[in-house]
Amino acid sequence: MNFAKSIAILLFIIFGFNCRTMVVSTWAHPDSAREFSKVRVLLGQGTEEEIFKTDSTIEVLDANDLIIKKAYEILSINPTSLKAPIRLTANGSYIEYKGAKYRGEIQLKPVDGKVFIINVVPMEQYLFSVVPSEVPASWPKEALKAQAVCARTYVVREMLSRKKQVYDVDTTTNTQVYKGMTKENPNTTHAVEDTAGLILVFNGSPIQSFFHSNSGGVTEDPINVWGNPVQYLASVRSDYDKEGDNYSWEDKLTGTQMNQFLSPLGLGEIQDLIVASRFNSSRVNEIDIIGTKSSKRIKATELRKLLGASKLKSTRFGIRREPDGTFFVKGLGSGHGVGLSQWGSYAMAKESIDYKDILSYYYKGVDFARMSQN
């Protein structure tokens, strides 16, 4: 074991095990009328023709659960003509939509001139797909369990905040990545089953269990990202992140690319980018953009949106303009940096650190609770 890893383990022992969590008996949803065991996942919006497939029979039911149509293996439907919600169920093991197979049922809901296509799936089965979509299924089992608890807590929190909306989550990184049954893996399925119903709570409520790929050595305080402080998401050292293949990175953008990316700012041709201030985590707070028409100081989070996450993987970076007019960027970490670092969790799990200890390191002062289903 090298010196850096020894220091990382020592820091974890000092700062992690001193704040071990406890398992609380149960957490029950405050709205007993809401079925909380199923997740509503937005798959897309309906067009004039949508095709659904299965390995048996698809039944179409109206709002009163009356069967209005049956189809064997393939169903073609025009959602734009719907005036009321319908739902699709299959006698087989899945419903296929746009090449992906989904558990549960499909609902088509017309709202304000649009038709939302929604997969309604039992929560634990939803997680069967989410966990391997977010992290490699080959990772150590304690890291997979940590991700399962994070993902479950995250969707519960989304369900609480979106209870009056048509859906709870979508299939992208805007919420959590969800790719249906084709992404499922026995390793991650076991991780979900081993932690069944387990979520993280703070003062009795499910937490905002934010996670990201790699913190670059230190997680970020959410007040520096979204403007709101969250006690249990305080910044922590994460030296284990050095194990990650995206711990450090660099990239180059041509002058033409930079002009194109930053054209919405209306500054003319970009002459330079200068870091104006940094947070304690060393992530950039504000950056000055110098153009031929004018200059502007913006937040690094805004710059990341303009350049894209593939070019500016995190806001822990440095940038300079080269003599040839290109812009050289070098940084640490990947993602917003708040909450659990997935690569940090991976390396901790490799050192046989329990998933509860991993979670209690990144989320300070939280408890574990078992969900009570309706």
Rank of each mutant, 00 (worst) to 15 (best):
G318T: 13
D112P: 02
Y102C: 08
V149G: 09
F210L: 14
G365V: 11
N259Q: 05
E220D: 10
R320V: 09
A369D: 07
G216A: 07
R152D: 05
F261N: 07
A143L: 05
L82I: 00
Y355E: 04
R297C: 04
P229G: 01
G104E: 15
L267K: 01
A28E: 14
A300I: 05
V41W: 13
K53M: 10
S81V: 00
S205N: 13
M22G: 02
G113E: 06
K305I: 08
I13W: 05
D357N: 06
R370I: 13
K70D: 04
Q125H: 15
K313M: 14
Q165T: 09
K183Y: 03
P264G: 02
I118Q: 11
A137N: 04
L11G: 00
F327P: 01
T326L: 01
E35Q: 10
E184H: 09
L200H: 10
G339M: 07
S25V: 06
Y232A: 11
L88S: 02
L144W: 04
E124W: 07
A143K: 06
Y362A: 07
T182D: 15
W27D: 04
L10Y: 00
S360C: 12
Y232L: 12
R103P: 00
S281D: 10
W343K: 08
L340K: 09
N185H: 15
F210A: 14
G333D: 02
E322S: 10
L61D: 01
N174W: 11
G268W: 04
V131H: 07
K311H: 09
G308C: 13
N246Q: 12
Q165M: 10
F52S: 12
V177Y: 11
L340R: 03
P122M: 11
T21S: 13
N228D: 14
F210E: 03
I106E: 10
I13H: 08
K101T: 10
D168K: 12
K70S: 12
L306R: 11
N246M: 03
V169H: 09
T256W: 01
K242L: 12
I290N: 05
S37R: 14
I298W: 06
A143D: 06
G99T: 13
D65A: 10
P229H: 14
Y346W: 09
E105Y: 01
N259C: 05
S25Q: 08
A84D: 11
T292R: 03
W343V: 05
E351W: 01
L265K: 05
K98G: 08
K98M: 14
